[in-house]
């Protein structure tokens, strides 16, 4: 199993991901699944710049992701899978069947969302979506950095 973390973070690739998680977990591949980023040159250029030497980054459209994750799961790389939205990750977990645990890393305030943790704001639909995913056996926890304690989905309260 080489998919080390599957993270939902609306800031996509940033310091917390690269330094906070990448280094202590010795990740060497980040797979960013986002249709818009995959289709935009300037965004790909920028995100690629955020990733230090020693970590490869690839940008996938959702349709390409399940097949690629299946290949990576048997490979030698230590992989972080990243999506910017709850819907993106729950879809990916179901479609690929390669994701055993989901990390809520940064979902910020937005219309219809309530605060659960200082870095996790969810709409009722998103919460239900995550609960349904957890019911299928995927472990869902919130944790912004490896050095902070993980918070389970069940114990999230507004």
């Amino acid at each position: 199993m080489s998919i080390i973390v599957a993270r939902i973070d609306d800031r996509l690739v940033h310091g917390q991901v690269v330094i906070g998680w990448g280094r202590p977990l010795e990740l060497n591949r980040i797979v960013l699944v986002d249709a818009e980023v995959a289709g935009s040159d300037f965004e790909r250029d920028l995100y690629r710049m955020a990733v230090p030497a020693g970590i490869d980054v690839e940008f996938l459209r959702p349709v390409e992701a399940p097949g690629r994750l299946a290949a990576l799961a048997d490979g030698p790389d230590r992989v972080l899978v990243l999506t910017g939205s709850v819907a993106g990750m729950t879809w990916l977990a179901r479609a690929s069947n390669q994701i055993r645990s989901v990390n809520l890393g940064g979902i910020h305030a937005g219309p219809g969302r309530r605060e659960y943790l200082r870095y996790v704001y969810l709409s009722p639909e998103e919460l239900a979506d995550l609960r349904a995913l957890a019911a299928t056996g995927v472990s869902v926890t919130a944790q912004d950095l490896p050095t902070t304690a993980p918070v389970s989905l069940e114990s999230l309260a507004p």
């Binding site: 800031r11 991901v17 690269v18 920028l46 995100y47 710049m49 955020a50």
Partner: peptide, 17 residues
């Protein structure tokens, strides 16, 4: 808006490092 989001990650990550 997409430019702003896309800049935030790299400018954070590069600057931190």
């Amino acid at each position: 808006q997409r430019l702003k989001t896309a800049l935030a990650g790299p400018l954070g990550s590069l600057g931190d490092q």
